[in-house]
Nucleic acid binder design. Structure first.
Length: 213
DNA sequence: GCAAAGATTTGCT
DNA sequence: GCAAATCTTTGCC
């Protein structure tokens, strides 16, 4: 399936993680597409490297990388083998295991140097819908890290997997906008509306949700 | 080998 | 609203 179509289809899908602590899951409400070696915002722009190798493999696998030396980001690989592409999951609306997500957010935040009591208090007061509003926060809340790289997200037996949107659930209101945090990329890649959000969800990261189609 | 930058988040001015 | 925190990957000498 083409990556932009896959990105739209991913909205509303459940991201599920089973650990010793139990089941955590969330409804995907924000994704970004990174497509091909020509995309000057993609990790694949320098060709195949040790880090991005999984992007060159078959669709449905997890690509997890460390960004800014601090946060892990989760992607779903798309396109056929040999065509590097992935969808960055930027936000999910928590469904199952919300207490566990809050605990994980707290534990992660307090590990940081310079962490303050005010930060811990802020996380304790966060509404459930704001527990995973950002790519680094999705992995923090769900307990995903680089050891999950290359996992098959389409395998129903996998501890980290995708599950289809429940049939009785409302369909997402899909809006497309430019991608976030890629100011280093040249045009036209910087301006492509390859970020997709469910505009009907209270859970969306970033500020500019307007200007889409 | 070394320097620089990065698909982010938090804290302080 | 800006800069720090933090470390892997990439590019160049």
């Amino acid at each position: 399936m083409p990556s932009l179509q896959a990105a739209r289809s991913l909205l509303g899908v459940r991201l599920v993680h089973h650990t010793a602590a139990g089941r955590r899951s969330g409804r995907i409400v924000e994704v970004e597409a990174y497509i091909g070696t020509e995309d000057q915002a993609s990790h694949a722009r320098f060709g195949r490297t040790n880090r991005n190798a999984v992007m060159f493999g078959p669709a449905g696998r997890a690509y997890v990388y460390l960004v800014y030396g601090m946060y892990d980001c989760l992607n779903v690989v798309t396109e056929t083998a040999g065509h590097p592409a992935a969808l960055l999951i930027r936000a999910v609306e928590p469904v199952d295991g919300t207490d566990q997500m809050r605990d994980a957010r707290l534990a992660r935040a307090l590990r940081r140097a310079g962490a303050t009591a005010a930060t811990a208090e802020r996380i304790r007061r966060l509404p459930v819908h704001a527990l995973a509003t950002g790519p680094g926060l999705v992995t923090a809340a769900l307990g995903i890290d680089r050891s999950d790289n290359e996992r098959d997200l389409c395998d129903p037996q996998s501890p980290l997997r995708l599950e289809v949107r429940p049939a009785n659930e409302r369909a997402p209101l899909v809006v497309a906008t430019p991608r976030i945090g890629i100011g280093y990329a040249a045009e036209p890649w910087r301006s492509h509306a390859w970020r997709f959000i469910d505009a009907s969800s209270p859970t969306v990261s970033g500020r500019d949700t307007a200007g889409g189609c």
